[in-house]
């Protein structure tokens, strides 16, 4: 038996969200026709037979979850299985399904003053004790809409990373200190509204940064460090990342890093990492171990 939890978190684009809030009084057509998400499906490759069951639970304060069959027109009443209010749940079997979030605020709030009401909700629910709703906000899921509301910030400065804090901890196992093994924690605030949802960085061998140009590859072959990305999170939530090691022959030529790096430096890239930060920005923490 294999069990897991899939968190589906709304993605709020700052500028789009604010535009929608302004339009909400006139009834945005986006709200009347939410975009469904196909439930992820899992399969055990080596199994002779398997049964998959998905429990869909709505923990969002500000949205209902509409559950649809895997196929069929969304506007067809036969396609929609059920609508989950907060704390409601339903089960989906082997055939899978689709779900869509529908904002509650837009349905229940009077048209006049809708913008203020939405903003107040998100602000209050982030502070315990200021609203009756907080009696049920123990789950991190229920905080997600609140965080999205608080973090709607538009960047009007340059696209850059304001600061990067790197903490290096030398590794010691069974009392023996490994000469070059170390753990690294990188903390930075990803810029919001960047051109891409991905934050990228490379790890290069420091020695070659100090001695650019042709070097002695034979000397380095036996000492190339390996990098293991342990965890990547944004605002405390683990996020998707990709890590690729470079073969020796392709290290120098593959990456175009833009104007921030000295193009004269011939680095020996060990690893290139891409972190899916979204466009909201947020505190990115990356932990990795170098051996």
């Amino acid at each position: 038996s294999i069990a897991g939890t899939i968190l589906i978190i709304p993605r709020l684009r700052p500028h789009v969200a604010s535009e929608r809030a302004v339009q909400s009084g006139s009834g945005s057509d986006n709200d009347s026709d939410p975009v469904p998400i196909v439930l992820p499906r899992f399969s055990v490759l080596a199994a002779d037979s398997e049964t998959t069951s998905t429990i869909i639970r709505n923990e969002s304060e500000s949205a209902t979850v509409e559950v649809y069959n895997i196929s069929g027109d969304l506007r067809d009443a036969q396609t929609r299985r059920t609508v989950l209010q907060r704390s409601g749940m339903t089960r989906s079997g082997n055939d899978g399904g689709r779900i869509a979030l529908r904002s509650v605020s837009r349905l229940t709030v009077p048209q006049r003053g809708a913008v203020e009401h939405v903003a107040d909700n998100s602000r209050f629910s982030a502070k315990p004790g200021t609203s009756d709703r907080n009696k049920t906000t123990h789950s991190p899921l229920s905080l997600v809409p609140s965080l999205g509301g608080v973090m709607r910030r538009r960047r009007n400065g340059p696209l850059m990373i304001s600061s990067v804090d790197v903490a290096v901890t030398p590794m010691m196992l069974r009392g023996v200190k490994y000469p070059n093994a170390h753990a690294v924690r990188v903390r930075l605030h990803a810029p919001c509204e960047a051109d891409t949802d991905w934050l990228e960085f490379g790890l290069a061998q420091a020695a070659s940064l100090l001695t650019p140009g042709p070097s002695d590859p034979s000397k380095r072959d036996g000492t190339q460090p390996s990098v293991d990305i342990v965890n990547v999170s944004v605002d405390g939530v683990p996020v998707r990342f990709e890590s690729s090691a470079f073969a020796k022959q392709e290290r120098n030529a593959m990456i175009s890093l833009g104007p921030s790096l000295d193009q004269e430096i011939q680095s020996d890239w060990i690893t290139w990492v891409r972190v899916h930060v979204g466009d909201q920005g947020g505190l990115v923490i990356v932990d990795y171990v170098v051996n």
Partner: peptide, 19 residues
């Protein structure tokens, strides 16, 4: 050698601490 990240974006400040 300590492997510290090199970012594709410009960085305002980089602070490295060895604990």
């Amino acid at each position: 050698d300590v492997l510290v990240p090199t970012f594709a974006l410009p960085i305002g400040r980089l602070e490295v601490t060895v604990e």
